[in-house]
Design a protein around this nucleic acid. Structure first.
Lengths: 136, 136
DNA sequence: ATAGGTGCAAAGCATTTGCAGCAGC
DNA sequence: GCTGCTGCAAATGCTTTGCACCTAT
């Protein structure tokens, strides 16, 4: 809450940051930095690749976007609701559903406590084929 | 079950594969390919880095080792029990505890079903500070 | 003998960084 | 005008691959 800006990150409002934010609003599946960069390029919003990387990294750090590290090690980003949740992602078309699992959170907490661990966070993502894609 | 060998992968038994398998037995935290390579090197078991990569990839494909993709995108490997489980990992010292969560598995299945997804698998890892490390 | 395995060095990729120029404030 | 932001290109770091040699069977 130090200094509120249009983008939520940084101190200046620039064309590039707005463009990235708009793109994230338009797309609502997880996309990599490079994919977002291509998307912007095709729209005519030219933004340097490094800027896309820097912006997404900053947005993720500010918790304004969710990040998932895919199994191939590539990071993908998506604008999400503010509350804690996980994702059910179609591995074919990328369609994403936010899912909340209070039971899982409680389970994670108790497992951590049982083993004497503190400051525990968790990663949990579900990957499968959505109804559309499984009618292949 | 085509052809059973000493290592569980490939058709030949080589010094290099045995060395990697032994190392995995000796260490029981998650280690990257490069870390395992260094470990072997210090032991005097010289194995090419590419061979370590190839062996770990093959072992993971054969489900003989577990893989976790860390947040920085690096893959880390560990020999684990055969049954399905997840991990509670100390982010400081790397100490790892296998945890089973039948409730989580059921939850994942039902969430997937509710959304019409099929062939769903999930990634779930807990990261925190173990008792030792939190007494900093 | 012959395929599979190995190792080196080079290539591939995603991502980060140095630095000069540009642009909000 | 300052300072932060941008963008290019170079650098980084993990991982994969081409290819010639080696070795278990």
């Amino acid at each position: 809450m130090a200094s509120e800006t249009a983008t939520g990150i940084g101190v200046r409002s620039t064309r590039q940051r707005s463009a990235v934010l708009v793109a994230l609003d338009e797309i609502d599946d997880f996309r990599s930095s490079q994919e977002l960069h291509d998307y912007l390029r095709h729209k005519g919003d030219n933004v340097g690749l490094s800027t896309v990387y820097r912006t997404l990294t900053a947005l993720a750090a500010a918790r304004e976007v969710d990040v998932i590290v895919r199994e191939d090690g590539e990071s993908v980003y998506r604008k999400c609701s503010g509350t804690h949740h996980h994702h059910l992602v179609c591995r074919d078309c990328g369609r994403t559903v936010e899912v909340a699992g209070p039971a899982v959170e409680r389970w994670a907490d108790s497992v951590a406590r049982d083993h004497g661990f503190t400051e525990v966070n968790h990663t949990l993502e579900l990957f499968g084929l959505c109804a559309e894609c499984s009618r292949g």
